[in-house]
Design a protein around this nucleic acid. Structure first.
Length: 407
RNA sequence: GGAGGAGUACCCAAGUGGCCAAAGGGGGCAGACUGUAAAUCUGUUACGUUUCGUUUCGAUGGUUCGAAUCCAUCCUCCUCCA
């Protein structure tokens, strides 16, 4: 099975500009392709994972990936969404984020010896001169057709600032620039980027009379049409400091029945044959598929070892007889104690199990908190330094959130 | 630049002097039921030293015994005109 066919079979490809050409390019390792990432945080998250995965697969087949970080667009602030206050990021922050990105990407992509590039669009976008830019590329964009683009259409009702309107031009310019400097001939991105990406291919055609291609990745949505990788606490991060391997594992272990196979196909390397045997599974049997999904993804993002540990811990907590060593743990210091003791409410806040004592109290009152297997009866329960010594306390919040507190 | 309209909690949205920590819906969290799933039902959803107190209705001042609600100024957004 060729790379392209595999991508299609896994449902990863949403739209392409020229199927035959792209097939030829990527199947034969002739593509130099780029995917853009906005350095708005100091870690990549699950939303980026699809893109990383695609880059990894493509690189394996001999294609050359370019990871583009949006340092230039980041200077202005990503106008998408409805953020009231765009945070102006400092050059240092952007640089810091870029470094972290590269570190994380290195797990998926081999950056050695020209096998892949990492570039920052700040390097060329910030130097642009307004009038020069207008003269250079302004004539190549038709406002009429831009307004017809899906991404703007939706914004027409709510209002669209000139800044946002220019986003497509910036992105198109990126492609145009890299086409010339790095020989980039394919742009990949989320399906929501389709019209921006077409802007780039169009610009290259008009300016240079050359063909460049674009391919979009299917957005990973739940069966209810929501973006995957979001929890109440925000994104599911790839950085183990921000989302521990155990939590990461749990996120996937808890996906809905309807989404498991879909995720296995799109995100993991589990063979299509194997996945097809799971298609007949029903009911609780699907738990095996979820187990597999969680393990595979944790392995890809963290390591085989971490994946095994997370699985062990999960089995220990949910079906007994496993090793509990790896559950998320908070280590308290003497300063956290008052007279050598700490109340359950403070303890929960310290462990990040509740955002406020009020919330912690509510959880206790509703019977949602257990410590060492015993339901906590009231918010006034206090634990001493002795309780916290050694193995510490195992706090259970709700049905599936476990946390250890030690001194 | 002119005329009008709007800004309420995580989101949408009621409330137009005291009974408002603020209806209703969505979302979240917890309980029951389950398969670490979904659906359903119940409770809950500003903060705290919790029969009470403190801070909240774009911002700042003011009127009043009392303001989300009235007045002034400012900020932001939308619609129409230019």
């Amino acid at each position: 099975m060729t790379l392209y066919d595999e991508l299609v079979a896994r449902g990863l490809i949403a739209q392409v500009t020229d199927e035959e050409e792209i097939k030829d390019l990527i199947n034969h390792g002739k593509a130099t392709f780029y995917i853009g990432f906005d350095p708005t945080a100091d870690s990549l998250h699950v939303g980026h994972f699809m893109a990383l995965n695609l880059m990894r697969r493509m690189q394996k087949a001999g294609n050359r990936p370019i990871a583009l970080v949006g340092g230039g667009t980041g200077m202005i602030g990503d106008p998408s969404g409805r953020s009231d206050m765009r945070q102006m990021m400092t050059t240092e922050t952007i640089q810091h984020n870029c470094d972290r990105f590269k570190e994380q990407m290195s797990k998926f992509i081999d950056f050695s010896e020209g096998k892949a590039f990492m570039v920052n669009n700040a390097d060329w976008l910030l130097k642009l001169n307004y009038v020069e830019l207008l003269r250079e590329v302004g004539a190549c964009f038709s406002v009429n057709s831009m307004l017809r683009a899906e991404c703007y259409k939706q914004r027409m009702e709510k209002g669209l600032s000139f800044l946002e309107f220019n986003y497509m031009i910036m992105q198109s310019y990126d492609y145009y620039h890299m086409y010339q400097t790095l020989g980039c001939n394919l742009q990949c991105g989320g399906d929501d980027q389709w019209s921006n990406m077409l802007g780039g291919t169009e610009l290259i055609r008009r300016k240079l009379g050359k063909d460049a291609y674009a391919l979009t990745i299917t957005l990973l949505l739940t069966s209810e049409g929501k973006k995957m990788g979001k929890t109440q606490g925000g994104a599911v991060w790839l950085d183990p400091e921000k989302t521990s391997p155990y939590e990461f594992y749990q996120y996937w272990r808890n996906v809905e029945d309807a989404d498991v196979l879909h995720c296995l196909k799109m995100l993991t390397d589990v063979s299509l044959d194997e996945i097809s045997t799971m298609e007949s599974w029903e009911g609780s049997q699907l738990n095996q598929a979820k187990d597999r999904l969680a393990f595979e993804l944790t392995r890809l993002v963290h390591s085989e070892e971490e994946a095994a540990k997370a699985q062990e811990t999960a089995r220990g907590l949910f079906s007994n007889g496993g090793d509990l060593a790896n559950m998320p743990t908070t280590t308290l210091t003497d300063e956290d104690l008052t007279d050598g003791a700490i109340g359950i409410l403070d303890l929960m806040v310290k462990c990040g199990l509740a955002p406020s004592k009020k919330e912690a109290r509510r959880l206790v009152e509703q019977g949602g908190v257990e410590v060492n297997g015993e339901k906590v009866a009231s918010g006034s329960v206090v634990y001493t330094a002795e309780n916290l010594a050694g193995e510490g306390l195992m706090i259970k919040k709700g049905k599936k959130i476990f946390h250890r507190a030690v001194l």
